[in-house]
C-alpha cells in the first residue's frame, strides 16, 4: 500500500523544513516590516494558488477565483463595518457566504466544458467584481470599503493585537498552512483520486459510477470556501478593499503561479507562488520595468522549464545520475 501511489508519499522533510523556515523567517529578516509584508503577501498568494490548483484537479481553471476571494473579503469587511462584528466572526461568515455563492454558481457553471469553462468562469468573476462596483451604497462602489480593522485576540491572560504586523504574519501563516494541509490531505485521499479520475477521463469516471457533476460542485465549493477565508484575512490585513483588488488579474496571476510552479502536485502552486511573489517584489525597485520583467520571467519559465518548478528535484537527480555514470 505505501509502495503504491494511492496515497502520494508526503515529502515530510521538505514540508517540515519549509514550515520551520516560515516560522523563523521574521527573525531572519530582522523583523523588517517591509519583509514581513512580503511574507504575508506570499502567504495569501500561496493559498490562492493552491486552492485554484484544487479546482485544477478536476481539469479546469476558474478565472472567478479572485472573485470568490472578494466575496469572502467583502462579507467579512461589511460584517465589521455594518454590524460591528470582528474578524473572528467575519472569517467564518466570509467563508460561508463564499461557499453559498460558489455552490449556486457551480450548478450552471459545471455544465460547461474545457475552454468554455474558462470563459464562463471569467464572466462570473467579472460579474462579481462589477456588482461590488455597481451597488455603491452597499459595497462602496469603486472606492471600496475602508477602515477594516484587524482583530484583537483576548485570551484573558494574553492580549494579541493583530494590528501588529508580526502577529498578523503568524495569523496568516496559520491559516495558509491549514489551507495547504487541507488541500494536500484531500488530494492524497480517495477524494483526490476521484477528482483526478474526472480530470483524466470524465466519460470513464461517469461510467464507473462516479457522480461527476456532484463531485465537481463539491470540489469547486470547497476551493471557494477556502479562498473565502483567505479573502477575509486579506481584507483585515489591508484594512481597505475595492473591486479592483479582486479583478481578473488576480486570478490570472494565481494561474501563472500554478503554471510556473507545476500542475501535478500540491508542491507546484506553493513553489510557484513563493518564487514569483519574491521575484515580483524584487522587481519593485525597477519601477516601470517591473511588469515587463515579470512578463519576461513568466514566458522564459514556461518555455525553458516545461512542467514547472516541481520538476526541478527530478532534473537535479537526473543530472547527478548522469554525472556519476561518467
Amino acid at each position: 500500500m505505501d509502495k503504491s501511489d494511492i496515497i502520494a508519499r508526503p515529502n515530510r522533510l521538505v514540508w517540515g523544513g519549509l514550515l520551520a523556515l516560515a516560522l523563523v523567517a521574521p527573525a531572519l529578516v530582522g523583523f523588517d516590516l517591509y519583509m514581513i509584508h512580503v511574507g504575508i503577501t506570499i502567504s495569501f498568494n500561496v493559498a490562492l494558488a493552491t486552492s485554484l490548483w484544487m479546482i485544477w484537479s478536476l481539469g479546469v481553471i476558474s478565472f472567478a477565483h479572485a472573485g470568490f476571494m472578494g466575496i469572502g473579503a467583502y462579507a467579512s469587511a461589511l460584517v465589521l463595518t455594518k454590524l460591528g462584528l470582528s474578524m473572528w466572526y467575519g472569517l467564518w461568515i466570509g467563508a460561508a457566504v463564499s461557499a453559498l455563492f460558489a455552490m449556486l454558481i457551480a450548478v450552471p457553471l459545471m455544465r460547461t466544458r474545457a475552454v468554455y469553462f474558462f470563459m464562463a468562469s471569467w464572466a462570473v468573476g467579472e460579474v462579481i467584481k462589477r456588482n461590488f462596483a455597481y451597488f455603491k451604497d452597499f459595497f462602496g462602489g469603486w472606492d471600496g470599503v475602508f477602515d477594516i480593522k484587524p482583530p484583537v485576540l483576548d485570551l484573558g491572560f494574553l492580549q494579541i493585537d493583530f494590528a501588529n504586523r508580526i502577529a498578523y504574519y503568524y495569523l496568516a501563516l496559520f491559516f495558509v498552512s491549514l489551507t495547504v494541509w487541507i488541500i494536500y490531505r484531500m488530494n492524497a485521499s480517495r477524494t483526490g483520486t476521484i477528482w483526478w479520475a474526472i480530470h483524466e477521463n470524465e466519460l470513464l469516471a461517469q461510467h464507473t459510477g462516479i457522480n461527476v457533476f456532484r463531485q465537481k460542485v463539491v470540489c469547486f465549493t470547497i476551493a471557494c470556501t477556502l479562498v473565502g477565508v483567505i479573502g477575509a484575512l486579506y481584507a483585515h490585513y489591508q484594512t481597505y478593499i475595492s473591486p479592483k483588488s479582486f479583478d481578473i488579474w488576480k486570478s490570472e496571476f494565481a494561474l501563472v503561479h500554478l503554471i510556473v510552479g507545476g500542475l501535478t502536485t500540491v508542491g507546484g502552486p506553493v513553489a510557484g507562488a513563493i518564487s514569483l511573489t519574491m521575484v515580483d517584489e524584487a522587481l519593485r525597485a525597477t519601477g516601470y520595468f517591473r511588469t515587463i520583467f515579470f512578463g519576461v520571467v513568466l514566458i522564459a519559465s514556461v518555455l525553458l522549464l516545461p512542467g514547472g518548478l516541481e520538476t526541478v528535484p527530478a532534473r537535479i537527480r537526473k543530472l547527478f545520475n548522469r554525472n556519476s555514470q561518467k
Binding site: 474558462f118 515579470f294 512578463g295
Partner: peptide
Amino acid sequence: LAVSLGLVLI
C-alpha cells in the same frame, strides 16, 4: 495562455 499573459505584461 500563460505565455500570452506574459506578452500582455511586456
